[in-house]
Amino acid sequence: MYKPSYGYFIIMLIMIFGVTACGSTDINNYKSEKTVSVKDQSTGNYRGEKVEKAQNIASADPESLQDDDFEVSYRSHKIDKNTDIKELIHKWGYSEGFEANNRGYNSGNGTYRRWSLSYPNYEEPEIRFVVLSKIELEGEELVDGESYLVAVSLENPKFKTKRGLKIGDTLGKVLQLYGKPSIVTNGSLLYSKNGLHLRIQWDTETEKVNNIFIEYNMEKSVKQQRSADYVEEGAQPDPDLEPYTIQREQSFTTTLNGWGEVKFISTLKDEDTDDLIQAKFFLEANDEKHVENKILYEFPEFYGNNGKMIDRIKAVSFKDLNQDGRTDIVIIADYITGVNAHGIETLPVAGIYFQKKDNTYTTQPELDKSINQTGHNRTLQNVIQYVNKQRINVQ
Score class of each variant (00 low, 15 high):
residue 4 P to D: 09
residue 7 G to R: 10
residue 8 Y to P: 00
residue 12 M to I: 11
residue 22 C to F: 14
residue 22 C to P: 00
residue 29 N to I: 08
residue 29 N to E: 11
residue 35 T to L: 13
residue 47 R to I: 15
residue 48 G to T: 07
residue 49 E to N: 08
residue 64 S to L: 13
residue 66 Q to N: 12
residue 70 F to I: 05
residue 75 R to V: 04
residue 77 H to R: 10
residue 83 T to K: 05
residue 87 E to N: 14
residue 88 L to D: 05
residue 92 W to D: 00
residue 93 G to H: 05
residue 94 Y to W: 09
residue 98 F to H: 13
residue 107 S to F: 13
residue 113 R to W: 07
residue 115 W to C: 02
residue 124 E to W: 09
residue 126 E to P: 03
residue 131 V to Y: 00
residue 135 I to F: 03
residue 137 L to H: 08
residue 141 E to M: 06
residue 146 E to T: 12
residue 146 E to P: 01
residue 147 S to K: 03
residue 154 L to I: 15
residue 158 K to R: 14
residue 160 K to T: 15
residue 169 D to V: 04
residue 170 T to F: 04
residue 176 Q to R: 06
residue 177 L to T: 04
residue 186 N to F: 01
residue 187 G to T: 11
residue 193 K to L: 15
residue 198 L to M: 15
residue 199 R to V: 14
residue 200 I to C: 11
residue 207 E to D: 09
residue 213 F to Q: 05
residue 214 I to M: 06
residue 224 Q to S: 11
residue 224 Q to A: 13
residue 236 Q to N: 08
residue 241 L to G: 10
residue 243 P to G: 06
residue 245 T to H: 07
residue 246 I to Q: 05
residue 251 S to E: 03
residue 255 T to C: 02
residue 256 L to Q: 02
residue 260 G to L: 00
residue 261 E to V: 07
residue 261 E to C: 01
residue 262 V to G: 01
residue 267 T to D: 04
residue 270 D to M: 03
residue 277 I to C: 10
residue 280 K to Y: 04
residue 283 L to M: 06
residue 292 E to Q: 14
residue 294 K to Y: 13
residue 294 K to V: 03
residue 294 K to D: 10
residue 295 I to A: 10
residue 297 Y to W: 06
residue 300 P to K: 09
residue 309 M to W: 00
residue 311 D to K: 05
residue 315 A to H: 12
residue 316 V to Q: 03
residue 321 L to V: 04
residue 329 I to M: 03
residue 330 V to W: 00
residue 332 I to T: 05
residue 336 I to D: 00
residue 346 T to F: 00
residue 348 P to S: 03
residue 351 G to R: 07
residue 360 T to K: 08
residue 361 Y to G: 03
residue 363 T to M: 11
residue 365 P to M: 03
residue 372 N to R: 09
residue 380 L to S: 05
residue 384 I to R: 09
residue 391 R to D: 12
residue 392 I to P: 00
